[in-house]
Amino acid sequence: MKLSIKKIIILLFILICSISTSFSAGSFDNKIKKISKNLRCITCQGQSIDASNSDFALDVKNFIKIKLNEGLNEEQIYELLKKKYGSWIVFKPEFKYDNYLLWGFPYLIFLIGGIYIFIKIRKKIIKF
């Protein structure tokens, strides 16, 4: 009975992983929504393309619609827009050497914190 919590947790993960999670793409409109939520409206301060009603935002929405119809996928559309407007336009920063610190910093802190707690607390922990 000693390991039962651990066993249950493992079992649980297996169970949940085995649940078939189909990543269906959703309808066409939802796809436009999803893409435009990840884009910044560069002519309006800080809003997303989806949230904005400015001419620029509407144009980009039309642009996405046309490109989707042409058969481009989400990533290709981001790439296309990045080429035209710079990486400022996408809300998800690219994973490349410029941004390693951005992506890595939180995990680094988590690791350091974990090691620190381990070292500090190990001395304090005793089994009663």
């Binding site: 001419d55 642009f63 035209k84």
Partner: peptide, 14 residues
């Protein structure tokens, strides 16, 4: 007609 060409050209507005 719908502004998509201006995006193709990389424009911000008129």
């Amino acid at each position: 007609k719908n502004g998509a060409i201006s995006i193709d050209l990389g424009a911000r507005g008129i």
